[in-house]
Simulated scan of single mutants.
Amino acid sequence: MTAGEQPTQEPAEVAPGTSLVTSDPAVLRALAHPLRVEILAVLDDLREATATEIAERVGESPSNCSFHLRQLEKAGYIERAPQRGTAKPWRPKHVHRNLAPDADDPASVRSSAALSALYVQREAARVVDYLQSVPETPEWTDVVTINLSSFWATPDEMQQLATSIAQLTAHLPGRESDPSKRPPGSRRGYLFATLNPDPRTPPTPEA
């Protein structure tokens, strides 16, 4: 997909309200661009922002950001926020996004994989930047974890692991949107986890 390509169809699977659930290849491809991933992350962080404010965060021109914002709007990821004087901010259209592919649709799988690769690259770069930054105080240094492990599991067992990982922060609800729920001394944290089968390893044969 080129930087300027638009979705080939209207994102009919975009659900109104707080969640976006879609496996539509066109909707996935619309986000599969490094700058669009970054722009959407900025909007998730700030809740709303103008093209100029976003440009300052991502190091791009406002006009370039405006182009990509319009593509994200067409795909259903963002929308216009109420105007602030002469400023015309944008905001995310959903609080949560489930962009898992349709396993029976090769185009959906390819599009989801391309988008996922961009998120992995972005998060890996963020972790590297953090590790190369000024050291934290001891109480925060002790919580930084880099954990690698290998194991043998069936698809059902891996699915159970994926569900468990997704629920790791479920006991901390509401703190992102409501500052009053954040305990004194708390800071924003990031959880970056990957789970995948080894493509080089054949399945264990039936007994």
Rank of each mutant, 00 (worst) to 15 (best):
A114F: 08
V128P: 01
P11Q: 08
E157S: 05
R91G: 01
R70E: 12
V14R: 13
L35S: 01
A100K: 10
L35I: 08
S180I: 03
T2W: 11
K181D: 13
D24F: 02
A32P: 06
G17P: 01
G59R: 11
H96G: 14
D44Y: 08
P202K: 10
P16T: 04
S116C: 09
N64H: 06
E13R: 05
T137W: 12
D104V: 10
I39E: 00
P173H: 03
L20R: 04
P199D: 07
V58G: 12
A170R: 14
T137H: 11
T137Y: 15
T194W: 06
P184E: 02
S116T: 10
A193T: 13
I39R: 04
W140L: 08
V120P: 10
R188I: 02
V120Y: 14
L172T: 13
E73Y: 06
S23Y: 07
I39K: 04
Q71A: 03
T50I: 04
R182G: 00
A125R: 08
A15R: 14
D45G: 13
A81L: 06
D45L: 12
M158I: 04
P16N: 00
N147T: 12
T204F: 10
A12I: 11
S150H: 00
E206D: 09
Y77L: 01
V95I: 14
A12R: 07
A75C: 05
Q6P: 14
S23R: 10
E38M: 03
S112W: 04
E60T: 15
A32G: 06
D44H: 09
G17Q: 01
N196W: 14
H68T: 05
E79K: 05
S180E: 13
N196R: 09
A81S: 04
C65N: 11
Y119W: 14
R97A: 12
V14E: 11
F67V: 07
P89D: 04
R80K: 11
P25F: 04
P16A: 07
L115R: 02
T163N: 15
H33G: 05
S149K: 10
A49Q: 05
S150C: 00
L131T: 13
P197L: 02
S23V: 03
E38Q: 09
Q6W: 15
Q121G: 06
D104L: 12
Q71E: 08
R91V: 02
E53F: 05
D44M: 07
V37A: 00
A49K: 06
A193S: 15
T18W: 09
P138T: 06
A30V: 01
E53H: 09
T201R: 15
R126E: 05
N98M: 11
T141N: 14
G185A: 07
T201V: 08
L72W: 03
T8M: 15
T137K: 15
P155F: 07
G85I: 06
E10G: 15
A125P: 00
P135C: 10
I146L: 10
K88E: 03
P202M: 01
D156Y: 05
P155V: 00
E5S: 15
T154F: 00
E206M: 14
M1H: 08
V95R: 09
G174W: 02
